[in-house]
Design a protein around this nucleic acid. Structure first.
Length: 271
DNA sequence: ATGGGCACCTGGCTGC
DNA sequence: TGCAGCCAGGTGCCCA
C-alpha cells in the first residue's frame, strides 16, 4: 500500500503524539510479520523515551533512549493513534502503549510489514544501508541518476522501483511521475537523455510533494493515523485509469503488466 | 552485475 | 449462493 507520501503522512500524524512520551509497554499479538518481530523487543523498549520520529525511504524510524524501532508498513499496513483501552480488532498486530494513555496501533492484514530494532545507527542497518538518496532532498540528483542508468537495459519504470537508485516511489507514483515527465514506462533506462532524466527527477519530486500535501493516496484501505483517507486518488493522471480518457489529451489510457505489476501510461502524452 | 520472476499473506471483487 | 481465480500500494531473494 503505502509509498513515500503515505509513510510521510503517517510520520507527521504520529510524531506529535510520540515525541517525549515514555513507552509503557510494547504489546505484540502477532509476531509473524515479513520478518519475525524480535522476541526481545518488548523488554528492550519498555520504559524508554521516544526522542524523534523519522523516516528513511518507506521506513519509519522511532528513535528512543534504548535504540531505534524500524517500522515498515508493507502493502497493507497502517498506524493509528488510539486510546490504549480501545479493543483490538482483527489484524491489529502491535500496540506501542504510551504513558499518555494512548497507543500507536499497527494493523496489517497481509503482514508484509515489519517491526525491527537496532541499537546502532539505523542508517547502517542492513535494510537501510544500500538505499538511494531521499527523493525530496538535494542529494537526489538527476545527473547521478542519469549516469547510473546509462548502462542499464531495464525499463525506466523498473529502475524507478529499484531502491538502490530511487527510493519512495512505488507502483502508483512510478506511473504518475513518468506521465508527468512525458516518458514511456517501457523505455530502456539507458536511452533516457540527461535532459529527460532531469525532467523525471523534477516530476518525481513534484508528484511526491503534491501527494503529501493532500495526505497521500487511498485506493482501498490506506488511512492516516486519525483514520482518514488521503485524497490524491482524485489527482491521479493514469494509475488505475486503463481505458479512461487521458486527463490531458483524451486518448484512452493503456495498461500493461510485468511480473504481476500494472503500469499505466498515455500513448500520446508519453513518448 | 543485471534483469526478471517469485514468495510472503489476506481480502475483495468478478464471473461462472 | 458458492467458489475458484485473479488482483492489490513492497521488497528481499533466487536464478539464469
Amino acid at each position: 500500500m503505502p509509498e513515500l507520501p503515505e509513510v510521510e503522512t503517517t510520520r507527521r500524524g504520529i510524531e506529535p503524539w510520540l515525541v517525549g512520551r515514555r513507552i509503557e509497554r510494547l504489546v505484540v499479538r502477532e509476531w509473524r510479520l515479513r520478518w519475525r518481530v524480535p522476541r526481545s523487543l518488548p523488554r528492550r523498549v519498555a520504559g524508554a523515551i521516544i526522542r524523534t520520529v523519522g523516516r528513511r525511504a518507506k521506513y519509519l524510524l522511532l528513535a528512543t533512549d534504548a535504540g531505534t524501532l524500524i517500522w515498515h508498513l508493507g502493502m497493507s499496513g497502517s498506524l493509528r493513534i488510539l486510546d490504549a483501552a480501545a479493543p483490538a480488532l482483527v489484524h491489529d498486530h502491535v500496540d506501542l502503549v504510551l504513558d499518555s494513555g494512548r497507543c500507536l496501533r499497527f494493523n496489517d492484514p497481509r503482514r508484509f510489514g515489519s517491526l525491527l530494532y537496532t541499537a546502532d545507527d539505523p542508517a547502517r542497518h542492513r535494510l537501510l544501508a544500500g538505499l538511494a538518496p531521499e527523493p525530496l532532498s538535494d542529494t537526489f540528483d538527476a545527473t547521478a541518476l542519469w549516469r547510473r542508468a546509462r548502462a542499464r537495459r531495464a525499463s525506466i519504470k523498473s529502475l524507478l522501483m529499484d531502491s538502490r537508485l530511487v527510493v519512495g516511489v512505488g507502483n502508483i507514483y512510478a506511473s504518475e511521475a513518468l506521465f508527468r515527465a512525458g516518458i514511456r514506462p517501457g523505455t530502456a533506462a539507458g536511452r533516457v537523455s540527461r535532459a529527460r532524466m532531469a525532467a523525471l527527477v523534477a516530476a518525481i519530486r513534484a508528484v511526491l510533494e503534491e501527494a503529501i500535501t493532500v495526505g497521500g493516496t487511498t485506493l482501498r484501505d490506506y488511512v492516516n493515523p486519525s483514520g482518514m483517507p488521503g485524497y490524491f486518488a482524485q489527482r491521479l493522471f493514469v494509475y488505475e485509469r486503463a481505458g479512461k480518457p487521458c486527463r490531458r489529451c483524451g486518448t484512452p489510457i493503456r495498461q500493461y503488466t510485468q511480473g504481476s505489476r500494472s503500469t499505466y501510461w498515455c500513448p500520446r502524452c508519453q513518448r
